Computed example of a mutant assay.
Amino acid sequence: MSDLPPMIHVTDDFSAAAQPPAEAMAALAAAGYRTVICNRPDSEVAPGERSADMAAAAQAAGLEFAVVEVTHEGITPDTIAAQRRALSDLPGPHFGYCRAGFRSSVVWALAMAGARPTDEIMASLARVGFAMPGLRDQIEALAAER
């Protein structure tokens, strides 16, 4: 798996990392991932690294692929809903990528609101070095809406 960036193993079913090269999709499949979720907007990457290129490489490796852009303007309710659909409708384990793995992990946490206990979500984030106590209230509010 030398083609892969260092992985953030948030749960047994979800990992995140910096955007890998398109050539790494076969390594992701070999590692047991079944779905790749692109959380990185095309405006951040060079030609050849855009979501369409990554989707083609993922599909060639036998992986499902979803695009759920997480921009620096913030995570919207539509973004959370799209991430939730990707996580629930596409087979796991899931691999999400962005610039460094942080946005992918945060949008995963928000998408899991109501599907997993808030304490479990927060502990998963803290275990991988993303202790964000301020996110708890947002997760609990989203869970209450589900």
Rank of each mutant, 00 (worst) to 15 (best):
S124P: 05
Q138C: 02
D13Q: 15
G129W: 11
A143S: 15
E69Q: 11
V70K: 10
A17V: 04
A81K: 07
S124Y: 02
L135W: 14
V45F: 02
I139T: 08
R116N: 04
R84H: 13
A52I: 07
P6A: 12
F102E: 10
V128K: 14
I121C: 03
C38G: 08
C98D: 05
Q138T: 13
R50E: 12
T118G: 11
G92E: 03
E69M: 04
L135R: 13
A26P: 05
W108D: 06
D42T: 00
S43G: 09
A144F: 03
D42W: 00
S105F: 03
I121L: 05
A82E: 01
E23L: 04
R146G: 14
V10K: 10
G32Y: 05
E145V: 10
T11M: 11
Y33E: 07
A52M: 08
A58Q: 00
A55V: 01
R85A: 15
S15Q: 03
V106K: 03
H72N: 11
Y97Q: 00
P91E: 09
A113G: 08
M7L: 15
R84Y: 02
A100M: 14
Q19M: 13
G134W: 07
Q83K: 05
M132C: 10
S51I: 02
Q19E: 09
V36F: 04
